[in-house]
Structures are given as C-alpha cells and as structure tokens.
Design a protein around this nucleic acid. Structure first.
Length: 411
RNA sequence: GCGCCUGUCGUCAAGUGGUUAAGACCUCGGAUUGUGGUUCCGAUAUGCAUGGGUUCGAAUCCCAUCAGGCGCCCCA
C-alpha cells in the first residue's frame, strides 16, 4: 500500500530538532517578558475578510497565497500572518481600554500557498511582537530593541538591521506621483513585472532584480527622486528621533531607501533584519509601524508597531542543539524491582528509564550506555541490602550506595 | 505561476545498457550465565519515486506523472 506522505511544503519537526525549538520558545518568553509583553494565542483560522481588509487585497499574500475554504457558508482562511489576527483580538476584547502601551507577543504556525524552497514552507512558524497605543518613536525603538535582543539571546550576531521610513499616506502619495512621472518615459523598456508594479505598487519598482530595469533606475534624474527626502517634516522628525535612540544604544543599522515591505498596512518606520548565511530567503525578521490598521478593521484609532520572525530560518541559523540524556537507567533482572525504583526516581524529579523488554544484563547495560548518564544497577544483593550500584557511564566509576542517598547522588 | 537540477534500504551512498544491486552508519540477534561504550560474527532492497515506452536485455536511454532542491516572483 502506498504510504501517505507529508504535504508539499510542510515538515515534521522531529524529536532531534526539538531542543532548538524549545530554546527559541523559552528565549522568546524570557526576552519579551522583560519588555512587559504578554503572550497571546489567536485561532489558526479567521474570516477571510480579515486578511483581505487587514493585510491588503493588492498583496500577493492575499491574492494568491491563502488557504481559503468554505464551511457553513462562511469563508475561512488559514492565517498567512498573525498581525491581522492579533489586531482583531485587540479590538474585539476592548484592549484599547487597557492602559497603553499594550504589548503582545505570539508564536505559532502560519500558512501560505507558495512554491517551497530553502527557508520557505507552506506551513511555517513565526514569533512576533505587536505594540499598540504609542505613536512616539520610543515605541519604534523599543520594538527594534526587542527584535535585536531576542536575536542576541539566541546567539545570532552576524545580522544586519535595515531601516527606512515610508512616510505617512499623504507624503508617500506625493513621492509615488513624482516617481511615476520620472519613470514614465522609460515605461516601455521595463520588464513586464515592473510594468505591472508601476500601477499597482510603484515603491516596489525599486528593488527589481532585472539588469535593464536597474540601469534605468540608476539614471541621475530617477536617483535624484529616490534619494530625496520625500517624507514630510513630521515623519522626518519621527524618523530622526528613532535614529537618535538607536544611535544612543549602539544598535548597528543601515538606512535602505529601497526597503519597501509587501504588506499594505505599513506607514513610517519599516525594518528588516537579514542574514548572509541563508541563501536567497535571507530575511529573518520583518516589521514596521501600522498606525491605521486598527481603525481600518473597525477599532478605535490606535497607532501600532510590530515585527515577525520566521522560526525555521532562525532554527537554520542556530544549528543543532544536543538533547539531554536520561539521567538514570535502571538495570535489573527483576522488572518489578526496576519499575518500582524507576518510578521512585521519577517521583523525586529524576528522568529515569528501565528496560521494558527484560533483556539480559549485558544488553540492558548496553542500552543504558546509549541513552543515559548513569546506570543504576539493582541486583539481588543490592535489593536484599536496600542499596543500588550507580555507575557513571562516561567515566566508568561506580559506587554502591543506600537507596535513600540515590537521589542526592544523581542530582 | 515560470526556469534549471535531482530522485537507489531508516540515513549517507557505489553503480552510467549485460550474471545473485557494492559499502558505511543506524536497528535487531549472537560471541558474552551481573558490568556497557572497543572488537568479531550474523540479519535486514525479488528492489532502484510511480506509470508507460525503446531494447534480446533497463537502476542505467526516452516520455509522462509525482516528490525534492535551487533560482525568479513574493515574503518570515
């Protein structure tokens, strides 16, 4: 019979990989908690409309990558990202009535119907933070610090932070218009993708990888527009304030004027954190400010900023972590005595196992040496004397001690 | 959605048209009747992703499908 396999773009996370995942999860809790963030868990599926209105219906994520299904005449979608879901929960639970800032963090699976490749799966995991209620650049700085310090806690140092400001809807509109004007004469020479972007999302024109397009965008009159500080005074001072905080805290970053993010809801600050060790899917973190999303989804006008990180990409950078061995493996020819002692040890907080198949002594010891730090040998003599022989399997040292002293010794 | 590459045991692989498809690791059993991790012996693919085709003969050549990798797009 044909075996059923995991679905394309999905993976089992096997026991051998669990130490890395536990590490990422524990550090997330530890680091984000220090900033006063609380964990939130929202459902894995939501109304399709939430993503259409939240993420934006001109984005690829919404247009072609969603897992959408009908149930009882409702259109439901597996979440492709978690900001929309967290915002929905924020609004629905009246969290705007809480004292600002409201800092939330999350972790969990996301779903996007894409062609899988290195660092990209159809089911993948993100860990992220959203901070609501603060319009000042202090929140931008704190969110970036959370991201940087989390990565640092994971032991990841070889990363670069890129920063940009998209301005507010008003000043961005002016920029878009100018950009389209100056590019217009070359429109017919652009690649088909760029011709589509020209109308749909002109900001995205700038990071096209096609040589011919790059040459066009390198022209002086176009560069003049790109490099100009198009953002309005208010947006500029917000951005300057943020940079002041980052400089004061010695956070290394670079300004990338071409950094535009693919989700429609961003304004002002956007940032990405990249690694040079991941191949073409090199962004481990992406985030930014989304001051109008809460209102657009029907909530009170609430500024917000957040980020998300791809956990599979983080795991790839962290590398392998060793699993902990069982502490004690009870070796005995008596399954009854073995199960009793093993349970006794477990009850006192020691990870312990014994041979369930009642194999010969030698085999039991062999098994112990593979999975445990100590063999606890329980023979007839030891049983009679109320003792046990503890053997350190790494050093071969062994010692017969009273059963009451066993726990002390193993700890 | 598009382009390039790949698919032999649980894992890593040799084999590139001609007898029973190397080898290693893992797993299991034994040498070893209370002292392991070293060593030695043995077991484990009627099968080479699947389905067709070419050929006297196919894991090896051709086609299709499926799966995987990488890149584009996009994104974490």
């Amino acid at each position: 019979m044909a075996i059923i396999k995991v679905q394309k773009g999905t993976k089992d996370i096997l026991p051998a990989e669990m130490p890395v995942w536990h590490f990422m999860e524990e550090k997330a809790n530890e680091v984000f908690t220090k900033y006063g963030a609380k964990e939130i868990r929202t459902p894995i599926f939501e109304a399709t409309e939430l993503f259409a209105r939240g993420v934006g219906d001109t984005t690829d994520i919404v247009n072609k990558e969603m897992y959408t299904f009908e149930k009882s005449e409702r259109s439901l979608t597996l979440r492709p990202e978690n900001t929309a879901g967290v915002v929905r929960a924020f609004i629905e639970n009246g969290m705007h009535r809480l004292s600002a800032p409201v800092k939330l963090w999350y972790k969990g699976p996301m779903f996007r119907y894409e062609r899988p490749q290195a660092g990209r799966q159809r089911q993948f995991h993100q860990v992220g933070v959203e901070v609501f209620g603060i319009k000042q650049a202090t929140a931008d700085a704190e969110v970036i610090l959370m991201a940087v310090n989390y990565l640092k806690a994971l032991g990841l140092n070889d990363l670069s932070v890129e920063l940009n400001s998209l301005g507010c809807p008003e000043c961005r509109e002016v920029f878009k218009t100018k950009l389209k004007e100056v590019i217009k004469p070359y429109l017919n020479e652009l690649c088909p993708d760029c011709q589509a972007r020209y109308e749909k999302n002109p900001l995205r024109l700038l990071d096209c990888k096609v040589e011919e397009c790059k040459e066009i965008y390198a022209k002086p009159e176009i560069q003049a527009i790109i490099q100009s500080d198009f953002i309005c005074e208010e947006c500029a001072s917000h951005f300057n304030e943020l940079q002041g905080y980052l400089n004061a805290l010695n956070i290394n970053y670079s300004i990338n004027k071409l950094l535009v993010r693919g989700l429609d809801y961003y304004n002002r600050t956007v940032f990405e954190i990249k690694s040079n060790n991941l191949g073409s899917q090199n962004a481990v973190c992406g985030g930014g400010r989304y001051d109008s999303l809460v209102r657009n989804l029907g909530g009170e006008d609430t500024p917000a900023i957040g980020f998300a990180m791809g956990m599979e990409r983080l795991a790839a950078l962290i590398g392998n972590k060793k699993d902990k061995k069982t502490v004690a493996f009870v070796v005995s020819n008596s399954p009854l005595e073995a199960i009793k002692l093993t349970e006794e040890l477990r009850a006192k907080g020691i990870t312990a196992e014994f041979d369930l198949t009642n194999k010969k002594f030698v085999k039991q010891l062999e098994k112990a040496s593979k999975v445990a730090e100590f063999a606890v040998i329980l023979g007839e003599d030891e049983i009679a004397a109320g003792k046990a022989t503890v053997k350190n399997l790494a050093t071969s040292e062994q010692k017969t001690i009273a059963r009451n002293d066993l726990v002390e010794y193993l700890k």
